[in-house]
Design a protein around this nucleic acid. Structure first.
Lengths: 219, 219
DNA sequence: CCGCCAATTACACAACCGTATAACAACGAG
DNA sequence: CTCGTTGTTATACGGTTGTGTAATTGGCGG
């Protein structure tokens, strides 16, 4: 006759965060399919039933996890600017380099992103979360570009932001999926050269201290 | 007493192709999770048991489907070059423009790709399929770049190919995930300008006939 | 036209999924 | 120290999954 499993109570915030963190880990490792209520509960150190005490349905937990993920990424991007150097060029250079270097580039993030992709098309709420955060990132980039000492109207700024964002996304994608296909720092160097070429400025020599000071991964 | 369901026999090749096609459709729509044996069989117009007659396990079917997908994408890329215009610049321009326009850019492809991503990290066979086809695409691009009338050593060519490929991948990604965020042709124009800027050539005016002659989607 | 073989259907099974509900116990209020 | 609240565990249920196996029947060789 096994005794009932001992436990101790936690604050609601702590429990929700733990469950969300566990869910994100599992999604990153094996996609949404691997993030079952039982597995999430096991990783969070609780029993499955507790999940439904904090989240009415599993979709609720999924949405909360995706929100957390996107907010974390936006936070990481903004953090890259906080201890950034002075001047438009170095700031943009640091931002671009950080976006294609670890810890932003890693198999976990791309795994997470891919794991949620299908639910994006199915669930309007998740699609809204995604669009908002994606455009926030691009606007941040566009503002950095607008600060550069060069002439460009609004339409040109939009195109430039889309193009530079594509370079970043593409390199992020390739570096994350094929981590061994590129030398350390190679992606950052390519990103700086390419973004500089697109914008018509010299970014590669604008960066003060390679190897770059990388931001801490939040969460 | 319902009679036994009537059927007629098909060649092995036809049946395998039908099952793979059905699996790909389902993966594109709802990820690997939606591609269950019963659902695949239903869409292919057979009963679930038949799947195991042609594929020893479901992973076998998954691998076959992914191979088919990657081969199809490579084929699409190569096809874009067949009826391409003369001259290095127009050829590259046509290739780049096609890669960021429909039918290459669409929610289905990115859904497919994302659906398989997690199995990529788990299954060595799938990872090999992926790497092979990815590098094949990049090599094709690199060869087009090498034909341009400009000076560049091998290392520079590699960096250029990675950068241009990133632009293409990034725009492909954004255009596929957010189809309504860009005007028709906008991505192609941005791609030509950006790739041209990176390589130091004028691609935008190298394209003879916009709107572009798009390749037929294969399969 | 007939008989055979394998392509196909039909059914069964254990494992797992998300969800529902009841029983228990940790811990602050009094 | 006791009691009540509620965070937590335990258990159950219907549905679905991949897989294994037996029963049929379509269509070709003779």
């Amino acid at each position: 006759m096994s005794a009932r499993r001992p436990y101790h109570r936690e604050s609601e915030e702590r429990r929700r965060d733990d469950l969300i963190a566990a869910a994100l880990e599992l999604v990153a490792e094996g996609g949404l399919r691997a993030a079952t209520v039982r597995e999430i509960a096991a990783r969070a150190g609780v029993t499955p039933g507790l999940i439904r005490h904090y989240f009415a349905t599993k979709d609720d937990l999924t949405r909360a996890a995706y929100t957390k993920l996107m907010q974390g990424m936006t936070k990481d991007s903004a953090a890259a600017l906080e201890n950034a150097p002075e001047g438009p060029l170095p700031r943009l250079a640091g931002f671009v380099a950080a976006a294609v270097s670890p810890p932003v580039v890693d198999p976990v993030s791309v795994g997470l992103w891919a794991g949620f992709l299908h639910d994006l098309r199915r669930d309007a709420t998740m699609r809204e979360i995604h669009t908002t955060n994606y455009l926030a990132f691009r606007d941040l980039l566009q503002r950095l570009i607008a600060d550069l000492p060069r002439a460009a109207d609004e339409a040109q700024l939009r195109r430039d932001a889309i193009a530079c964002n594509a370079v970043i996304d593409g390199l992020w994608l390739e570096g994350s999926v094929l981590p061994d296909a590129f030398a350390p720092g190679e992606l950052a160097a390519i990103a700086l050269t390419s973004v500089g070429a697109i914008l018509g400025v010299d970014l590669a020599s604008a960066l003060p201290t390679p190897p770059l000071a990388l931001p801490e991964r939040n969460s």
